[in-house]
């Protein structure tokens, strides 16, 4: 095992153990749940109330770790990884992002403010919100 990092869709970074002998970018079962919010159950890969069946379990897991590349394929997410530097990033595919945008439902997110406090968009729900994107560059 080698120490690596996973950045999930929400932009959260988790330090993980990366398996050296299985998969393209496999992390331990415990790290997998912490990094992605998903869990491997008898009925498949599950998050909240949703489960996705796994047809080729032996490609996904060797019993101690889960290959994030296979996980991304099964759950229709994007993954980019740097095997040498042991860093992977998971993200939404263009088609599903387009669909969620079309729904016009404002997705929630949680980010640190400039004082390091975590703030959620939903902390301000039931109000009109102006979401303003800017930068220092």
């Amino acid at each position: 095992m080698n120490q690596g990092r996973v950045v999930n869709q929400e932009g959260e970074t988790t330090v993980v153990d990366v398996a050296s002998n299985f998969g393209e970018f496999a992390v331990s079962l415990a790290d997998f749940a912490r990094a992605t919010g998903w869990q491997l159950k008898p009925e498949g890969l599950c998050i909240d109330e949703i489960c996705v069946p796994v047809r080729e379990a032996n490609r996904l897991t060797d019993g101690t770790s889960i290959d994030l590349v296979e996980f991304a394929r099964v759950t229709k997410q994007n993954i980019v990884f740097d095997r040498q530097r042991q860093v992977a990033a998971l993200g939404e595919r263009a088609d599903s992002r387009g669909d969620s945008m079309s729904s016009l439902l404002a997705p929630d997110f949680k980010l640190p403010d400039i004082h390091g406090r975590q703030v959620s968009f939903s902390d301000f729900n039931r109000r009109k919100r102006l979401l303003l994107a800017w930068s220092s560059w």
Partner: peptide
């Protein structure tokens, strides 16, 4: 509130 989106998560969510 002024939030810092290092990973451009909101850019992704809202286009």
């Amino acid at each position: 509130p002024v939030l810092v989106d290092k990973y451009h998560v909101v850019a992704d969510l809202y286009g």
